[in-house]
């Protein structure tokens, strides 16, 4: 189902190598995206974990953020942001001013679960998955509000950690750091359906 599909991974900074490995495991062709030209022929884009302020600043250069937004608005690109990536695509970031794409109607709070000493692992129930997903949260953001048409696919202790809308996913945790490929497989499978 996902054979041969080209999926980009925003490779400005962060754990893009882990996402590439997961994409390759599910049979997709993974492409590193650093400049607008690298989006050529790419149907999906994963924005990795990393430092959201760094990714936001680097994406402003060379028109990369505009190119991503334009491709998304034309319906040519599905986007999945994990952790820092979720912050980057969120419309609203509480408490901080930082460059971001802002195309998904959610609000996020950075480092909502605390600093690194509070980073944790936990099992999550996710809508659409038949058994729990072991999730890794690292200085994770919380999704504090979702707009109309945005589905909450998972919460942890009443706090939203996975939101999904048409062509957009935001997860607070890092599926790429586990061996569990279910979400990568689903993301790739949904492309150009």
């Amino acid at each position: 189902m996902s054979k041969g599909k080209r999926v980009g991974v925003l490779a400005l900074q962060g754990d893009f190598r882990e996402h590439k490995q997961m994409l390759e495991k599910v049979g997709a062709e993974a492409v590193e995206v650093r400049l607008p030209a690298h989006l050529e022929g790419v149907g999906g884009l994963i924005v990795p974990g990393g430092e959201s302020t760094t990714i936001g600043k680097l994406a402003r250069e060379y028109g990369l953020d505009e190119a991503v937004a334009e491709r998304y608005q034309r319906g040519e690109l599905a986007i999945w942001g994990t952790c820092a990536g979720a912050i980057w695509i969120a419309r609203e970031i509480l408490d901080y001013q930082q460059p971001h794409l802002g195309i998904m109607d959610i609000a996020v709070r950075r480092n909502a679960f605390g600093r690194q000493v509070d980073s944790f692992e936990a099992d999550l129930e996710i809508t659409g998955l038949d058994f729990p997903f072991h999730a890794i949260f690292i200085r994770a953001p919380e999704i504090v509000r979702v707009g109309e048409g945005v589905e909450v696919r998972s919460s942890y202790k009443g706090r939203i950690v996975f939101a999904a809308a048409a062509g957009l996913w935001a997860t607070s945790f890092h599926p790429e750091l586990t061996g569990d490929t279910r979400l990568h497989s689903e993301f790739v499978g949904e492309l150009a359906k």
């Binding site: 990393g50 760094t54 944790f120």
Partner: peptide, 20 residues
Amino acid sequence: MEKGTLRVKTGFAEMFKGGV
């Protein structure tokens, strides 16, 4: 919920990659 695990520690370091 588990804190301070090896995966959480090394995973955090992964987030610095490609950075200064």
